[in-house]
Design a binder for these strands. Sequence first.
DNA 1: TAGATTTGACCAGT
DNA 2: ACTGGTCAAATCTA
Length: 315
Amino acid sequence: MDPFWPENNLPSDRMKAVNELVQGREFANQLKAILNNPKGISDDGLALFSREDLVTKILNSFTNTLSILNRADSSSGEVSDQFPATSHRCGGRKLSEDSGESSKSSTGKDRRGCYKRRKTAHSWTKESSTLIEDGFAWRKYGQKKILDAKYPRNYYRCTHKFDQGCQATKQVQQVEEELYSTTYCGHHTCKSIVKASELFLDSADADSTIFLSFSTTKGEDNISGDNLDNPFFPSFQSIKQENNQDNISSNLTHHQYSSSSEYLVSPDLSTFDHADVISGVNSSSTTASAHGLDMGMMVGSVSFIDDVLQFEFAE
DNA sequence: TAGATTTGACCAGT
DNA sequence: ACTGGTCAAATCTA
């Protein structure tokens, strides 16, 4: 029997899940077509679909599929770490070990500690001198004194963890008086990703400078050879805004990524270990250019056209 | 009063 | 055994 699809699941659920995946594949194909077109413009000169829209659609497809699978999963009385969307609350824990026999639980209905620690998900670390507003809604769920650390570490999860099954988390560690290290784990699959996009799109006004970091460094272990020639493969990593363009070098935030950023239209196949250089920004046309200095040269430009990010790269 | 934060306990990984 | 990640009751706040 298929362990992922027990006998008592409704066939309609299976069909819904399949349909969601088929739809997601279709969106992914459209995205691939766009990525194969360096300018994101079709032959007739018209702009293709918004990449961000497609990414959102694909993520929604996954979220919906997970929800369906979760429903099916809970109805089967099993729990799965693969499908943690909305019922990630102790359902499958071996409660008999604790609830019935353990005397550790003070109330007898204490459910704390009911969790499965996630294996190392995609994560990336960002350091900055201030706490960063990244546009996502975070809920603090823990604070921990870390050995040899001067300050406690704060743990945040996405506010939409339970209503949308978003598994994104972040840890904020104050390293020094004015230095914070934020580690993001997992990607947002919630609607707030739109909010984040709007956040930086809206703020791309003429008075601000947009800093973009690119890297052409290959990942360690999960590069697919087929993608190496894709000009979007080493997609841009981060966006930082500063009001004073004179401070480009001093204000650059250094990022270390092991997967792509939330804003990216990226096949999520590369890893990054170096954020490189911003060359210049033309704020009047909201076009930015950037290049990586070491490991293979990459020059690219990014512009906002009708709220759609347009990428252009040249080797 | 609902949602967010605090905080001690629990548990997984090493 | 120890450390760090997560849970959930208690508490806070808008």
